[in-house]
Simulated assay, not measured.
Amino acid sequence: MSKNILITGCSSGLGLALTNLYLQKGFKVYGISRTKPEIQNDNFIYKEFDLANIEQIKPSLQEFIQNIHDIETVYLNAGMLGEIKASIDLEVPQLKEVYELNVYANKELLDIFSTINVNNIIAISSGASVNGSKGWASYSLSKAGVNMLINLYAKELLNTKLLAVAPGVIETPMTDYIRFDINDEEFPSAKRLKESHIQKPEEAAQRLHDLVINIDKFTSGDFIDVRNI
């Protein structure tokens, strides 16, 4: 019997790369995203849903997830960057929009996962969760929240290994926005990102898979930056 993988945000970027990687390895992949990727594979089971609809997550996804029964690894990948903007110029509703999707949506999903057997949960975090840089308030606050969310749930989901993982810089529309549309002089972090190693999504997906293979080396609830291992 093939093992089950669940991936949120499976339609593009890292999520799509993870989906293709596990399908190639013969896993059964359950995907959740706003739009369906162009994948023709009997082992791909898809649920269209916008995780920004926080109040509808449990009513809409609980049955879909619970019917899986046993999941080898969950990748909580769906999320958003928000606008790169000085903190003083950000309004609370802008912060709230990013925080709700990046943190509260994952909290609702974790509650559902607590009702079935899940071996591993990998929440996609970021180096921005621990490094404060001008312009990154929405994203940094939310990813710091992801780290603590995973730390807290690790104390409760004792039969599941949970990690918050920063996968490094990946070539996606999000990083393209930072590299090509953001003023280097006003936001120095954009220049640092441009000068760093930019991974293809497939490279990042493989590194995450390798991390999961060696997951016993890590303590449940930890924040891991793949660039430091």
Score class of each variant (00 low, 15 high):
residue 141 L to C: 14
residue 57 I to S: 12
residue 89 D to F: 11
residue 173 P to I: 02
residue 193 L to C: 09
residue 221 G to P: 02
residue 69 H to V: 13
residue 153 Y to N: 05
residue 124 I to L: 04
residue 160 T to H: 04
residue 145 G to D: 06
residue 75 Y to R: 04
residue 192 R to E: 14
residue 156 E to Y: 06
residue 148 M to P: 12
residue 113 F to Y: 08
residue 120 N to L: 07
residue 225 D to I: 08
residue 219 T to H: 10
residue 111 D to R: 14
residue 84 I to P: 09
residue 121 I to Y: 00
residue 153 Y to E: 09
residue 196 S to T: 08
residue 35 T to S: 08
residue 56 Q to I: 14
residue 81 L to N: 15
residue 199 Q to P: 11
residue 160 T to D: 00
residue 176 D to S: 13
residue 81 L to P: 10
residue 167 P to H: 07
residue 94 Q to K: 11
residue 8 T to R: 04
residue 76 L to V: 06
residue 9 G to W: 03
residue 65 I to P: 01
residue 131 N to H: 15
residue 45 I to G: 06
residue 196 S to F: 07
residue 62 Q to D: 13
residue 223 F to Y: 03
residue 116 I to L: 02
residue 159 N to R: 09
residue 96 K to A: 12
residue 92 V to E: 13
residue 48 E to Q: 14
residue 198 I to Y: 12
residue 53 N to E: 15
residue 214 N to M: 04
residue 120 N to E: 06
residue 29 V to C: 00
residue 134 K to C: 12
residue 225 D to R: 03
residue 54 I to C: 11
residue 69 H to G: 08
residue 150 I to Y: 02
residue 124 I to Y: 08
residue 164 A to H: 02
residue 136 W to D: 02
residue 141 L to Q: 15
residue 75 Y to E: 05
residue 160 T to W: 00
residue 9 G to C: 00
